[in-house]
Design a protein around this nucleic acid. Structure first.
Lengths: 234, 234
DNA sequence: TATCGTAAATAAACACCGTTTATATAAGGG
DNA sequence: CCCTTATATAAACGGTGTTTATTTACGATA
């Protein structure tokens, strides 16, 4: 048989290829992603995949897009679950989802934030908007917290470099919802912190040093929120 | 000719293989590292390399070891250059060397802290001691600054989780030079911050967001040092 | 209903890759 | 002078992504 039963079966096949690809990566690591392996698992031949993804790169790009959306979905779920909680609880939940999703889906996280297939880099015009998606709600919490006066930017973070402030103001106006540059700097600082800890955890660099990455992560987030006066010392 | 001229020429060849390997990675990315490519560049055949590195993994391991030492050397140089400066200046220099080396040698940095060749992971018993090497002098500066009373651990960082504190005390005693757990937590927090920013810069995730990664990096480090009261607000 | 266009699969081949095997060569020591 | 040993090679194996030409069978059209 050559043509499948259904009508729009082509899309189903494309989706199944992605599914199998992700399974293969989970099983055999990022290196285990081979067209022939996917094909054998699906009971077809490797060149057949070219009907759906002209190149291996295109398949990887599709996987990256899915990974971005999955991460965004995980953080979104955390946001809605705590939508009626305190600012601190909401940020803790969203930022906790960031790490948890990374730990549970290390391959997909590396796909987004690592060097998944060296020599390949996802098209920026596609990933740049996707990269912002997971953080939309998180930034809204920050803005809300600042507008109500709950969030105080620490003195040491108040003078953002001019080059950065101008850049932020620039695309803040472009997007339409401008964010105060110092607040934005504070957000990026927070992003850098949690991202660093997550990356060091995924590459097994921090575990031998501090023993309990999860506990340290909470400790760091709590300290951060305390400094913003969103959380009081226990 | 089969055997080269010199006596210990085998080591020279092994070193040259590493050099060419690094050149190939710089040229064609981490994916461009192929035994056949190295061999062709050197005017020999691929199997000849097996006389020096039984497997490709062994070559990569050697490259990682070199990378660790190079990073340590860069940070060491920064430390000695500022050995008579203030604590803040010394930390700024060492931590600045961390980023600068990463930016100038992105492939080597990925070799250490990334997923260089998927499916391969460096032997932990070899890399764990090496991983500490770059930070030895940095930690000494912290300890010195704390002993003289110049460094103050912020309130929000004072209660380290028990699991982490116990772990740190455990291997602090093992190594011989115990470090106060809260100080250590503070150091790791700093490491996480700079590492996160560097990783986000290398994967091109932060540049489209803040425009000037170098400036933001200094901003973050300064804020960190101010919070430790090692630097006064300008 | 017969025919045609097309989507989707295949087989075969190409140029790579890491790796193994067996073999050849030449330097250095007894 | 011979023999050990280090070092190189050629050839082959199984694997990879990718291209090409060909076949198959569905869906619509006349």
């Amino acid at each position: 048989m050559s043509r499948p039963k259904g009508k729009h079966n082509g899309q189903d096949t494309a989706r199944k290829i992605k599914t199998v690809a992700r399974q293969q990566m989970e099983k055999y690591g990022t290196a285990g992603l081979t067209l022939r392996g996917i094909a054998k698992e699906m009971g077809i031949t490797a060149p057949a995949i070219y009907n759906y993804y002209p190149r291996l790169e295109d398949l990887i790009t599709a996987l990256i897009v899915d990974a971005f959306n999955a991460l965004a979905e995980a953080m979104h779920a955390a946001a809605v679950e705590t939508s009626h909680s305190s600012y601190a609880a909401r940020i803790q939940a969203i930022v906790g989802a960031y790490r948890q999703w990374a730990v549970e889906n290390p391959v997909d996280f590396q796909l987004i934030y690592g060097n998944p297939i060296p020599g390949y880099s996802a098209p920026a015009e596609l990933t740049t908007p996707l990269a912002r998606k997971p953080f939309i709600e998180l930034m809204q919490v920050y803005v809300e917290a600042m507008n109500t006066g709950a969030l105080h930017i620490p003195t040491e973070y108040q003078d953002l470099p001019d080059s950065v402030a101008q850049y932020i103001d620039g695309w803040g106006q472009r997007v339409g919802t401008p964010i105060p540059a110092p607040l934005f700097g504070q957000i990026i600082s927070g992003w850098g912190r949690i991202h660093g800890l997550v990356m060091l955890e995924l590459t097994h660099h921090i575990q031998p040093v501090i023993g309990d990455p999860a506990a340290f992560y909470s400790y760091e987030v709590n300290a951060y929120l305390q400094r913003l006066e969103l959380l009081s010392p226990k």
